[in-house]
Design a protein around this nucleic acid. Structure first.
Lengths: 201, 201
DNA sequence: CACAATTACAACCATCTAGTTGGAAACTGA
DNA sequence: TCAGTTTCCAACTAGATGGTTGTAATTGTG
């Protein structure tokens, strides 16, 4: 049987994603990742370099695939609200991306890993936003996206705050989702209106 | 000279706050905290118990004092927007609270430390919100507060996202602040309008 | 088949880490 | 002054932890 190095790499990346997602960079254990993947840990150093580089690989892979999984579709403020709703749902089902995002922010600070790829991803989202809300500036588009990410990604990472503020009755997620969607709609509509005023027909 | 145990405890708590803020629970080092405080690390175990308990003490102290430092004042949607603005400014100047909040969320999950005190703090904020926007429900007040916290606390923890989305030109913080304040205003105004409709004069 | 290159892995290591301990020094009250 | 208590600290420990290495198995290639 041939060496299936791609499979081994994939196994390692998957196990690392789950470990880093749960415990972050400092809390993750190389031994645990290797054991979970059923692979000798020495492979990690051959394939990825070291713990930090493996973390980087996990971040880039997870965040890039998220960009493809949840696209911005349609146009108008309701398109941005719809995007926020789908992002919210995605994170509700699987909190991997938000957790990794915040781990990265906390443990890595301003240093961005996988810069070129992620810059391209962000630029693409900004362009989609401008397409959905014609006439708004790049800055406003970026701002709106940050607002959306803040609203959708913070909640799954802060279960305690949510429980403290809003209790844990059933239907909670539904209501929170509606609040996020509405807030994004209002913000997007305000930006769109502003853009229309600035460039009247 | 008498033993000044309170001072020692305070020194330890201050050093621990800075260490946990920078590196989180898993990344923090007991030795570093003791050295920074200029105190023998054995004191930590006498005064606080262990690393986890020290982390809890830091969280409760920092988040509680934040509640007092940034109160909700006035009434109407603009009062909530103003609150968001002051919270944003506070976190801009000192990111300790947001960082600790997210560390706690990531490393501790749903388990809330210092539950009674924090429940009281949250309830107090919810009541202030209801006072500012008469007629809105507890759930909506909590939701609005979560929205505000998400918008104000996420940014200082995600410098990379901010740089990626919006560049790093001067005046960036100003613009982001304005966007947050406006978004909160719109959300609060919508809730207030809804409340007025539900209970017409 | 022989050869070099690659992949796999068990055992290993230097270092670090949270937590402990035993005893010295400083304080208290009588 | 003196016994009892509390605070302090240097040195220690047991167990992890990230990373390495020597070697054997597997592969493609001439």
């Amino acid at each position: 049987m041939a060496w299936d190095t791609e499979r081994t790499k994939g196994l390692l990346l998957k196990a690392a994603t789950s470990e880093f997602c749960a415990r972050g960079l400092a809390g993750a254990r190389i031994d645990r990742i290797a054991a979970e993947a059923g692979v000798n840990k020495e492979r990690i150093y051959q394939y990825f370099g070291n713990k930090n580089a493996l973390f980087d690989a996990v971040i880039v892979t997870a965040l890039s695939s998220l960009m493809d999984e949840v696209p911005i579709e349609g146009s108008g403020p309701e398109a941005m609200a719809d995007y926020a709703g789908r992002l919210f749902d995605h994170h509700q089902k699987d909190a991997t991306a938000p957790r990794l995002l915040f781990w990265e922010g906390l443990e890595r600070g301003a240093e961005v890993v996988g810069l070129p790829k992620r810059m391209a991803n962000c630029a693409s989202k900004v362009n989609s936003t401008i397409a959905a809300l014609p006439g708004i500036s790049k800055e406003d588009a970026g701002d709106l996206l940050i607002t959306i990410v803040s609203l959708c990604d913070a909640a799954p990472v802060l279960p305690a705050l949510d429980g403290l503020m809003a209790g844990d009755d059933p239907g909670r997620a539904e209501r929170r989702r509606a609040a996020v969607v509405r807030t994004v709609y209002l913000a997007a509509a305000a930006l769109a209106a502003e853009a229309r005023e600035a460039t009247p027909a």
